[in-house]
Amino acid sequence: MSTIPASAFLSLALILFCIGLYGALTKRNTVIVLISIELMLNAVNINLVTFSKYGIKPSITGQIFALFAITVAAAEAAVGLAILIALYRNRRTINIDEMDSMKN
């Protein structure tokens, strides 16, 4: 039995998600935007693991889902950084405001 209420974990995940959201929307450097997205995915994983313990019917499935989410996030980071490197080789910039060649 735990003495910490579930809402404490959910609030922590909410704060981390909001930090990641703000960082992803305001930062100029594309690497920082990618890592802010990783922070948001981490907040989602905290929610999944919390509900695997505090849910109406506690079970291991929430942790399994979190493991799958971590796997997909790692694959996403690798492909995203490969796209970033290819883009940097062609355009010589990692500023996200200058990546607008599909706009006009």
Binding site: I35, A73, A77, L81, L84, I85, Y88, R92, I94
Partner: peptide, 20 residues
């Protein structure tokens, strides 16, 4: 293993290889 190890190192490499 994955976040504090792999993804952080990957991001550090991406920063080193680009203009920072």
């Amino acid at each position: 293993l994955i976040y504090a190890g792999a993804i952080t190192i990957l991001m550090l490499f991406a920063i080193m290889l680009t203009k920072h």
